[in-house]
């Protein structure tokens, strides 16, 4: 019986299990760089990837950054921008964009600037797109990690963050009330630092209570 079992098992092979094909990013001994994934021949344009609209892919008009989005801003786009921002940007720039992200706190020699400084509040939208695409200073480019449309969504969200951090109660549409008082920070947009503790009684007591 053992002999039969041995003969039967000798027929077992892993040929179907390990087929002579490459899985994504598998090692190949055929090419000198050992990569089975080959870069396309230079100048290749894949179907649907012809970059006709240069503004969509560079954020620039001529040499200067433009100040509009190449497609309409919708609520979905901002939500997408927020999601992508939180994935790719927040580790360093923090969720409120003050440059106090968790990675920075682990010992970056220089922290990224806050989005809420005057220079960046005045910067055109295309500037942010260009920085995501090509990097800036010690920030590397995110062109391979974030698709162009998502980069624009992030740009829109950054602008929304900037507006939100400098918003006043006058920006709230009539008939709506702010659910709670925003916390007070020592420096504008410093969500990563603890808010200043209010020692006075409720701040809005002096104002009229909305009924």
């Amino acid at each position: 019986m053992l002999f039969t079992a041995f003969v039967a098992l000798a027929g077992c092979r892993q040929d179907m299990h390990d087929q002579p094909r490459f899985k994504p990013f598998a090692r190949s001994d055929f090419y000198t760089d050992l990569r089975s994934a080959r870069p396309p021949v230079e100048g290749t344009v894949a179907r649907g990837q012809l970059r006709e609209d240069s503004y969509l892919y560079t954020g620039k008009l001529g040499n200067d950054p433009g100040d509009y989005l190449p497609f309409p801003v919708t609520e979905e786009l901002l939500a997408r921008g927020q999601q992508r921002y939180d994935i790719y940007c927040a580790p360093c720039h923090s969720r409120v964009g003050d440059g106090n992200g968790v990675i920075v706190a682990r010992g970056f020699p220089r922290k990224p600037p806050s989005y809420h400084i005057e220079r960046l509040r005045q910067a055109p939208l295309g500037y942010f797109f260009d920085v995501i695409t090509n990097g800036y200073g010690s920030m590397t480019d995110y062109a391979t990690q974030i698709a162009p449309r998502d980069r624009w969504a992030i740009v829109a969200y950054i602008r929304a963050l900037q507006l939100s951090q400098a918003a006043t109660s006058a920006d709230v549409p009539a008939g709506q009330k702010v659910p709670s008082d925003p916390p007070q920070f020592e420096e504008l947009g410093s969500g990563a630092t603890p808010p200043v503790v209010e020692t006075k009684p409720a701040r809005h007591s002096a104002q009229e209570e909305p009924k």
Partner: peptide, 10 residues
């Protein structure tokens, strides 16, 4: 490069 996004700094 993704590793180096941060590990060029820390």
């Amino acid at each position: 490069k993704t590793c180096m996004n941060c590990h060029a700094q820390i």
